[in-house]
Nucleic acid binder design. Structure first.
Lengths: 362, 362
DNA sequence: CTGAAAGCGCTTACAG
DNA sequence: CTGAAAGCGCTTACAG
């Protein structure tokens, strides 16, 4: 463990420990990894030697030999701020940690450049991981090819999947139908839609029918589709309904969207927001504009994040099992690493009627 | 690239590519890593062969050889939910990514078990990383020893440091003095303090003087100390001031704390909250109790998170450079990996007077 | 410009 | 229970 001529101490290796303990490297290794196949005496000598040398095994070397790194790649588009300011993003990490954390797994966060896309091909290629978990990526994100090339298990959460791949999603379309139905049942005919991003180009503003027809974010597309289907079934042309697209799933974006929709004809009596974050912003805009919710304006969200029930008024929304998405993804990772066959899980949603919706006043 | 007898395809290795291209492994490697030292002809042959085989280099093998993994360990206590529901925690990750993200670095998040402590020794020992960045760990967290043992650079952000180690912090004590001074200057004599956690035991409630004397979280300790020093200088016995400790840095905890302090004698005319998150909760509690801020009650925070300026009333607080902490940490990581000598950085804070403070009404 | 050899630090069958 | 040998997949001096 002596200093080299550079003055920097060299880390002790297993070979050093073996010499110090007077055993072979194999025995030294066994003392750590197969305590039952080592005599107490030798094991103690090895452990003592390791202690003396301040030895700690090199995880990369072990990983190379064992063919496993102990890390799971968590791939998100956008910068960490955006990915994790979304309660759903954090819940995913949390659920993963709950399931996988016990067996000393770490999570390698690979994030995007802040321009809508995921990590670079280089970052994906160089990631020391055993599997990838992707979170709400755009269908055409180039990092998907980069991951496919690695040949590692890929668990897609709310995003594009590889053929015969693993995935976990929720009943986006059904949830959206439930919500729309609820609003229509109350008697609303003039609705406005505030949607999450359609494509990874950072656009923020009214979404033309053309744009809505080519949505590369799965959850956005499915929620939009569910909404359109119910509208059409009620005899309302979905193409005539104003849709405002928000580049970020954040209350401030919902606020701006609602302001726009509420201050231009046709003034909607109900705002269908495709996430609670956006709905929270819409609620704030309504208050600012002096529009009473739900008396003068109904607002619905989606997700049922914690803040939804604490909002004023408490938000009518669709509950999705946020944390379960993470734990389910964790279980799929475990199955994948155990060599099982890929499967797809779709988690159920549930309509939660609170106080932000009522019949229209006119 | 043929399937093995298990039916699962074997990943192509560099050796396979070399054979396919009819060159040595060294040349194949050079074609990828030293394009300038390879003839165009051979390089193309190698690249084509790699393409045909779907080859992608094994990052672990490369890492072992090069002695670098391309990942930075981000060590936080608590589960991801708590660590990243704190805007400061996310800002750290973001700043790190901004500085280090370009050179294809990933961040291995090592989180705690949800009982106040950091990752297990096993998780730390097995982490495939080139350096550790710790975020607001308790001074006595066992994972610190585990990291020291790895012999890797350790950059401590707002937490315990190794002797002669790297660190980035802020002027916690000065900020706290500024805030306390401001409150005292306004004429307040009856103050209450709402503090972040003192020790990693999940305790939530009034903090006795004994407990305040042994605080293992650096920021909490320094802010408490700054506060006490100013109080004492103004002739107020810090021991007589009620202090309520919150186990989590979350508005809901500040809410409960404020309720308690405001509904028991001596009823304070000013609440010194040691974070904006807590102050936000205190503001909500004051509103609920019908106490006008700042007319009947002054409230100050600390951090100047985004929500502080949007609060009602806008919060008087101390601004710390949240994002800079992350970018600074990133730069220190880069320096550490370049073999430079450890240094410590303390970032400045600044008092921001808004509308949540005023002279006492009685 | 190219290749044969050595080695990063570890673990795993396999003999003894 | 222990050790000699091979090898995980790659890169790096070093000759040619």
């Amino acid at each position: 463990v002596g200093p080299t001529h550079h003055g920097r101490p060299r880390r002790a290796t297993l070979a050093d420990v073996a010499v110090e303990a007077g055993v072979s490297r194999a025995t030294a290794s066994n003392a750590f990894n197969k305590p039952d196949r080592t005599s107490d005496d030798l094991r103690r000598r090895v452990l003592d030697a390791a202690e003396r040398l301040g030895y700690s095994p090199d995880p990369m070397a072990r990983g190379l030999r064992r063919g496993r790194s102990g890390a799971i790649g968590v791939v998100v588009a956008e910068r960490p701020t955006y990915a994790f300011s979304d309660p759903a993003g954090v819940a995913l990490l949390d659920g993963l940690a709950e399931v996988l954390g016990s067996d000393e797994t770490g999570f390698l966060v690979l994030s995007g450049d802040g321009h809508g896309g995921g990590p670079t091909a280089g970052a994906v290629a160089g990631a020391v991981v055993d599997a990838f978990v992707t979170y709400s990526l755009s269908d055409d994100d180039p990092c998907i090819d980069a991951m496919a090339r690695r040949g590692l298990p890929l668990i897609s959460v709310e995003g594009p999947t590889l053929p015969d791949g693993w995935s976990v999603g929720i009943e986006d379309e059904r949830g959206s139908r439930l919500l729309t139905q609820h609003v229509l049942d109350l008697g609303h005919r003039d609705v406005g839609i505030i949607t999450m991003e359609c494509r990874p180009d950072g656009r923020d503003g009214p979404a033309s029918p053309g744009r809505r027809a080519h949505v590369t974010y799965g959850p956005t597309r499915r929620r939009l589709d569910g909404c359109a289907a119910e509208l059409a079934a009620a005899g309302i042309d979905p193409g005539s309904v104003p849709v405002y697209e928000c580049a970020h799933n954040h209350p401030s974006a919902g606020h701006a969207a609602a302001r726009t929709l509420l201050t231009a004809p046709p003034c909607p009596t109900a705002l269908i927001c495709q996430s609670d974050q956006l709905a929270l912003g819409a609620l704030a805009a309504a208050e600012q504009l002096g529009r009473a919710v739900p008396a003068e304006l109904s607002v619905v969200g989606f997700d049922d994040i914690e803040a939804a029930s604490r909002a004023r008024p408490p938000l009518t929304t669709v509950r999705q099992p946020l944390r379960d998405k993470g734990t389910t993804a964790g279980r799929l990772v475990a199955e994948a690493l155990a060599g099982e066959t890929p499967r797809r899980v779709v988690l159920p949603v549930e309509l939660v009627i609170r106080s932000s919706t009522a019949p229209p006043s006119r």
